[in-house]
Amino acid sequence: MAFFTWDVNPVLLEIFGLKIHWYGALFAAAIFAGLQVMKWIFQQEKVKLALLDSLLMYCVVGIIVGARLGHCLFYDPGFYLSNPLKILAIWEGGLASHGGGLGVILAVYFFQKKYKLEYLWLLDRLAIATALFGFFVRFANFMNSEIIGIQTDVPWAVIFARIDLLPRHPAQLYESLSYLSIFVALLLLYRITNIKKHSGALLGAFLCLVFTARFCIEFVKVKQAAYSGELLINTGQALSIPFFAVGIYLLLQAWKKSRI
């Protein structure tokens, strides 16, 4: 069977010796797209648009710092604790979405304390933008031929020629398309239902949907953690369980309050 071969240069273009990578361009597109979603929501709810600039800075710092620390501490703690300066070498690659999520949650906490916004109200709305953000980032991983899937012979398997010549699950595309679908679902819920009136419900739905998808897709990913070994579930799945549990809790709390 002839499989699709993927052999794209991770460098999008080079100008006067300055290399612009696909990952960087798509990461910037993710931030821009998420900002536009939040701008539209703020306009719908008559919230000052001037707050978005500060919110953007808090979120970007939270994502990058959290994702980097998450990668270092969740996936290869032995190496990074022995070489702490390597934690700062972000240009060498290595960002973990679970860490990025925790970083944003913490950053938004400090933001809302400063600007006096309701915490869950803000996280609910950021959940919509974050799902779209995830779509771009996972597609960037596909462009980079990273976070690859395990070997398979399904008709849609992809050969990542920059890695090897084995047909593999395009796990990055599975995740990317899942997050895009979740974005559409959350946006529709926001627009045509009363879910936004129930504090924590949108965030709960986001956590349940995203981390269910993540848990399932991890079964067809190459293990990333240095210490995964022969565990029944891998690090990405283990880290997804608490997020899913928080999502269930938020949905139950929102449901209980709606019945009072």
Rank of each mutant, 00 (worst) to 15 (best):
M1L: 13
F3Y: 15
W6L: 08
D7H: 12
N9L: 12
I15E: 03
I15H: 06
F16C: 12
L18P: 10
H21T: 10
W22T: 00
Y23V: 01
G24P: 03
A25C: 11
F27S: 11
G34Q: 06
W40D: 07
F42V: 06
Q44P: 11
E45T: 10
V47L: 14
S54I: 07
L56D: 14
M57H: 10
C59Y: 13
L69S: 03
H71D: 05
L73F: 08
D76M: 12
P77H: 06
P77E: 00
P77Y: 02
P84M: 00
A89V: 10
G93T: 13
A96D: 03
A96N: 01
H98Q: 09
G101E: 06
V104C: 08
V104Q: 07
V104M: 04
I105Q: 02
F111D: 00
Q112K: 15
K113C: 10
Y115L: 13
L126A: 12
L126P: 03
G134A: 09
G134Y: 07
F135S: 06
F136R: 00
F136A: 02
V137L: 00
M143A: 14
S145H: 08
G149R: 14
G149V: 01
G149S: 07
D153Y: 10
V154I: 02
P155I: 13
P155G: 15
W156K: 04
F160W: 04
I163N: 13
D164K: 05
L165H: 14
P167Y: 12
R168T: 01
P170Y: 05
Q172R: 03
Y174N: 00
L180C: 09
A185C: 03
L187Q: 01
L188P: 00
L189H: 06
Y190G: 01
R191G: 07
N194K: 08
I195D: 02
K196V: 06
H198N: 10
L207V: 11
F211C: 11
C216V: 05
F219Q: 09
K221N: 09
A225L: 05
A225P: 03
A226P: 14
E230D: 13
E230A: 12
L232H: 06
L232I: 00
N234Y: 00
N234Q: 09
G236N: 04
A238T: 13
L239H: 05
S240K: 00
S240P: 05
F244R: 01
A245E: 10
G247W: 00
I248D: 09
Y249K: 02
S258H: 14
R259G: 11
